[in-house]
Design a protein around this nucleic acid. Structure first.
Lengths: 254, 254
DNA sequence: GTCAATAGTTTGTCATGACAAACTGATTTC
DNA sequence: GAAATCAGTTTGTCATGACAAACTATTGAC
């Protein structure tokens, strides 16, 4: 049985590492810790047992335990802070800022994206959306709201608008594909985009669907995309959990 | 005088590490080794002195010496082989990009930028800054902290590092000009950059100087910039009041 | 209620000491 | 001359032990 290496709530008999094994002790400990983290038995964000107690419970020395922890720190699974303890790290999405869809990027990164469609309807465009999409005020748009998961947890809440008649889309489509894939299939290819990245605190509603605490920081992104002919294809307003997401840019000046 | 840490041909008096220094012993050793490698005094492919002898010559313990060597192994400078020894590895290659400075942008937007210099000093680079600027660990940098105002209110708190000797800068300079203007005047032109944009909550100290409430959302930006020759010019870590700032990008797809 | 001081917790650094595993070069045997 | 063995070298692993630095929570003073 794998030992419980998280901070114990009740006394647990320490598992004995296998000293007859050729596998180094530090590696056995690291492997067990990693298993517990990946199985969710030590939750992301929570602390593992302190070094001294952990070493004692495992029947190995503190340097050996530290070596095991360091192994996982180097792999981005744990983070240590003097005086505080060792915590399990949130896996973060760092996304190059390119004209692509989050769905495609997550899939490329093998982060098992999943989409929950919360809303899909045709409405009269609010003024700022009409302006962005360059349609007449009050013109109709297809408006949809999606919750995007990555690796089994919520990552982003996305509102998007497409001019009505431009794209025939169903909730099933939106659940299965990314928006840009659906646009391409309709022969609509985004070529140009303007996007604004910002941040703010989550509202209570957003916090609830994203699994964050109220007031948590969200990264925001508002984007309008056009095709090569200057036809506005899409307006989007996304919020991302700041604890899970950042944008990456590589810039150059001619 | 830097010690000769390569395998000795003749007896050399061991240099004494500075035990009064706050810099850890292992780090001093690692830094000295790196210097010798980068100066070519230990050639690529050749072996350094074995751990036991090296430790003895430096007057530190073998675990400390191993820690120093491990540090350089992790940075791809050394490789170890049991029974054989530790050798110098060929250095790795780089990559390219670019950007602009907040000061220039604010001035262009007629937002009356103003800068308050909170700190300016020459320090030994923390490891992550040294890595970003591609200087030796512990190498000296000019480190400064500035509070940037726009339109009379605080907007951003910015920490920057420039390799020591690269730019002769005073607090008055930093108060009056943006960093990139100062770099240009010194003939240093940023051509490529990598930056990561994220968000998090303000710490109490940050909230105080930025005039935000505790826990307010901040946009974060970490950036390294290089000139056309691949010389690292600047490392920056900025936080912006999310209520007052966003990034705007215009993207196009080939 | 706020701030400073204090105590406790946890990680970071450093030391001595010992034995094992992988490797290389020299020596011996066939 | 080739193969096996042996000895030496060097790194890898593990242990006990101690003290320092960073952090947090508690307590006391104002």
């Amino acid at each position: 049985m794998s030992p419980d290496l998280s901070a114990p709530r009740s006394p647990v008999r320490p598992v004995e590492v296998d000293r007859t094994s050729p596998v180094p002790l530090y590696f056995q400990v690291a492997t067990r810790l990693q298993e517990l983290i990946e199985k969710g038995e030590i939750g992301v964000g929570s602390r593992i047992e302190n070094e001294v107690d952990l070493a004692e419970r495992l029947g190995v020395s503190r340097p050996t335990t530290r070596r095991a922890i360091q192994y996982l720190v180097e792999r981005g699974m744990l983070v240590r802070k003097r005086g505080v303890g060792t915590s399990v790290v949130h896996p973060k999405v760092r996304r190059p800022v390119e004209l692509s869809s989050l769905y495609d990027d997550l899939r490329a990164a093998d982060r098992t994206p999943r989409t929950e469609v919360l809303d899909l309807r045709t409405i009269a465009a609010p003024p700022e959306v009409a302006a962005a999409l360059e349609i007449e005020p009050g013109g109709e748009i297809v408006w949809f709201e999606r919750l995007r998961y990555a690796g089994g947890e919520p990552l982003a809440l996305m509102h998007n608008a497409v001019p009505a008649g431009l794209l025939d889309v169903s909730a099933a489509d939106l659940a299965e594909f990314g928006l840009y894939e659906l646009l391409r299939r309709a022969g609509l290819v985004p070529r140009i985009a303007n996007q604004v990245i910002g941040a703010r605190s989550a509202t209570t509603a957003e916090a609830t669907v994203l699994g964050e605490r109220r007031g948590a920081s969200l990264l925001t992104m508002v984007r309008t995309a056009w095709d090569a002919e200057g036809q506005a294809l899409e307006y989007g307003s996304h919020v991302y959990r700041a604890s899970r997401y950042s944008f990456e840019l590589n810039l150059s000046a001619g």
